[in-house]
């Protein structure tokens, strides 16, 4: 259950990064459709947070410990809302670039989250 969700969120985050990166390349600020995209990715991240906490409550254990795992889950859930607010304040191409950067970081966090959960990494 957890791994498919991580993959889905990683792919969605990369797509959002590419989309907003393209807007920045075309010298455009974030528009309504971008915010809908950010909302979709954020909802996925919130689902992941709930699924992760439920898994912990159900007795499963994260490989690198509960504290690290929950911290990563919270960071993933907060990433897109944070850059979304920044892009509301920055109505230029740089607002789009900021969202692209945040979405890319979220995709990287998914890779780390996978390691933290199942211990395939360091």
């Amino acid at each position: 259950m957890f791994t498919p969700l991580t993959v889905a969120l990683g792919v969605a985050a990369l797509a959002l990064a590419a989309w907003c990166g393209f807007a920045a390349y075309r010298d455009q600020p974030t528009k309504d459709w971008h915010f809908i995209g950010m909302a979709v990715v954020t909802v996925l991240a919130l689902v992941q947070l709930v699924v992760g906490v439920v898994a912990l409550a159900g007795g499963q254990e994260a490989d690198e410990g509960t504290l690290v795992f929950v911290s990563y889950l919270l960071g993933c859930a907060a990433a897109i809302p944070a850059v979304a607010f920044l892009s509301l304040a920055e109505r230029t191409r740089w607002g789009s670039a900021t969202v692209a950067a945040g979405a890319f970081v979220l995709a990287v966090l998914q890779v780390r989250l996978h390691d933290v959960w199942s211990g395939t990494g360091a």
Partner: peptide, 17 residues
Amino acid sequence: GTGPGRLLVTLYAIFTI
């Protein structure tokens, strides 16, 4: 902290956290 600086602030904030 605005324009390109906004992107810079974001990246530095992420690395700070």
